[in-house]
Each structure stands twice: as structure tokens, then as C-alpha cells.
């Protein structure tokens, strides 16, 4: 299929790739950019495992076309840590045991990161609302909520 040039920023670095019109953002990130942290858990935007940030807001990358993110800032779980130091959200998941099998974790971390940027001191209800589209089959969510609360408390 014919490809056209897609220019966007991924985790702070500008990229330019030849990408077909029908390529999903998740496939672009995993197959073209080589960032396999973003997961595919379902085929219909039902599980949230593929959540990334586009211009700082959560986006389900498995139901977004890559080309519709032209010119945007895309962030994936690989972009969270700086200089080998975990982000506050990642640290929260690590210390509060918010991750078990880990498959949903990248999506959870990105949805939680998007929330804390908009709302640095969310209530438990606001955390639950922001993560309501992200399914976890291991934790029962309690530890995930605690992880996000810990991240919010740890923020300066």
C-alpha cells in the first residue's frame, strides 16, 4: 500500500517515517518506532492496554490512525523515566505493587500520568474515573489506586 510521510514527536524526539494510511498508532509505535511497551489487549478500545498520551491527553492507540497524530506530541511508557529514574507514577506502581502480570501496566501508567498532569491532587473517585477504561485482570485495582495516590502525594 502507498505510504506517505508522517511527521510527529515521540517521547520528545521528532520523527519522520513513511507510513501507510491504514496503519494504527499502536502498530506505528510498536513496529516502526520499535517501542513495544505499548500493548494490544483487545480489538475494540475496550481494555485500555494501548493507552498513550497525545498532546498530554490519553488516547487509545489501537483505535487511532497513526496519520491522525501528524504534528502531535505522542508519549509512551518508554518516555516516562528520565536519566534512568522512574517517574513518580512508575515509582508508585513499583512501590505499591500496582503491577502483577504487567500487561495492563503501560496503559495504566499513561492514563494515570495524563490525569495527574491535568489534576495533580485527584480524589479516589477521580482516579477511578480516569482509569475506568483500563482493565486489569490481576490486581483488583486496589493497589493501582494506591499507586496513583502515592504518585500524587510524592509530587512536589
Amino acid at each position: 500500500m502507498a505510504k506517505s510521510i508522517l511527521r510527529l514527536t515521540v517521547n520528545g524526539s521528532g520523527r519522520e517515517d513513511a507510513v501507510p494510511a491504514n496503519m494504527l498508532l499502536v502498530d506505528y509505535l510498536r513496529e516502526v518506532a520499535g517501542l513495544t511497551g505499548t500493548k494490544i489487549g483487545c480489538d475494540g478500545g475496550e481494555c485500555g492496554a494501548c493507552t498513550v498520551l497525545v498532546d498530554g491527553r490519553p488516547r487509545l492507540s489501537c483505535i487511532s490512525l497513526a496519520h491522525t497524530c501528524a504534528g502531535r506530541q505522542v508519549e509512551t511508557v518508554e518516555g516516562c523515566a528520565t536519566d534512568g529514574r522512574l517517574s513518580l507514577v512508575q515509582k508508585g506502581f513499583h512501590e505499591k505493587l500496582g503491577s502483577q502480570c504487567g500487561y495492563c501496566t503501560p496503559g495504566m501508567i499513561m492514563a494515570a500520568s495524563g490525569l495527574l498532569r491535568r489534576n495533580p491532587r485527584p480524589s479516589e473517585a477521580e482516579i477511578r474515573e480516569a482509569l475506568s477504561g483500563n482493565i486489569c485482570r490481576c490486581t483488583g485495582y486496589v493497589k493501582i489506586i494506591e499507586a496513583v495516590q502515592a504518585a500524587a502525594e510524592g509530587a512536589p
Partner: peptide
């Protein structure tokens, strides 16, 4: 016509929408 894609992209993926062209309105 495509906007957010939360309905149409899923339907394309499942083979129940088969557009030859997608016009992004966003």
C-alpha cells in the same frame, strides 16, 4: 467520514465497515 474513530475504526477492524476512503473531519 471519520471523527474520533471509537466506532468506525473498530468496525473497520472487524470487517463490518469497508470504506475505500476515510475522510478525517477532526
Amino acid at each position: 467520514f471519520l471523527a474520533g474513530g471509537t466506532d468506525l475504526i473498530v468496525n473497520i477492524r472487524r470487517g463490518i465497515a469497508e470504506p475505500g476512503t476515510v475522510i478525517d473531519l477532526t
